[in-house]
């Protein structure tokens, strides 16, 4: 058993060294790949969406080579702080909780409101069964509502399915995620007003990685200045506010 360990270690040491000599400025961007329109996998299985275009443009402006990596949402922050990629670009709202563990860039969207979607027009969401994806700010919000009953599902897909099949009265999620679905299905509709949760969406960095954060902040600022960020927001997030 010991020899195996040594052999594995030797192999691990070897592969790394072979590639260490190549160009050094590759930045790995972690995303979920399951949150249209921010990030999703297109028909070819490539990462696509608002953040893909934005991220590629930011990397070009910061003169960095970027590589997209998909990672499960639940472990997206632990894998960042553990160094498996260098930045998160996954539709992640800037919250105080997250800010304690990682650092955020300046927001690249205005705060995105959340909405309730239901099959019934007259549902009273304050006293209803509300579905949300576990581990999201929406789940936290519903849990703290006095009269509502929270039902948590592992994926965003299942939360919407729960409303379709009547398990839940309504679903609470980001507006940008729900709107394309509502537009496509006549029986679903938005109920109530927008709910404002969290700040805008930003890139996440390791707290020890201030230099990289500054590079991206500068790039984000330059895109805000010349209006190209607003153009992207209008293309991908038609309901979102611009800068």
């Amino acid at each position: 058993m010991k020899t195996i360990l040594t052999a594995t270690a030797a192999l691990a040491l070897g592969t790394g060294m072979a590639f260490a000599a190549e160009h050094s400025e590759t930045v790995r961007l972690g995303t979920e790949g399951a949150y249209a329109p921010y990030n999703f996998l297109d028909d070819n299985g490539e990462v696509a969406g608002f953040e893909r275009q934005l991220g590629d443009e930011l990397c070009a402006r910061a003169e960095l080579t970027c590589e997209w990596v998909t990672n499960d949402w639940d472990s997206i922050i632990p894998n960042l702080v553990s160094g498996n990629y260098d930045a998160i670009m996954a539709g992640m709202s800037i919250t105080d909780e997250r800010d304690e563990v990682i650092d955020f860039s300046d927001p690249y969207t205005q705060p995105d409101p959340s909405v309730y979607v239901s099959t019934m027009d007259d549902v009273d969401v304050e006293n209803a069964v509300v579905a949300a994806q576990s581990g999201t700010i929406q789940a936290g919000h519903v849990a703290s509502m006095e009269g509502a009953t929270l039902v948590e599902f592992a994926t965003p897909e299942e939360t919407v399915a729960a409303v379709r099949n009547g398990e839940a009265d309504a679903v609470l999620a980001d507006k940008a995620f729900l709107m394309p679905i509502v537009e496509n299905e006549s029986e679903l509709s938005v109920v109530g007003d927008d709910v404002l949760l969290g700040g805008g969406i930003g890139m996440g960095f390791r707290e020890s990685d201030g230099e990289l954060r500054e590079k991206f902040n500068a790039a984000i600022q330059s895109m805000k200045d010349d209006g190209s960020l607003n153009a992207l927001i209008e293309e991908w997030l038609p309901d979102g506010a611009t800068f």
Binding site: A12, T15, G16, M17, F19, A20, E22, H23, S24, E25, T26, V27, R28, T65, G83, D86, R206, S208
Partner: peptide, 13 residues
Amino acid sequence: VVCSAAKLPSNSA
């Protein structure tokens, strides 16, 4: 945090 040479696999791989 480890030095970039110790990253496994290397970032630019």
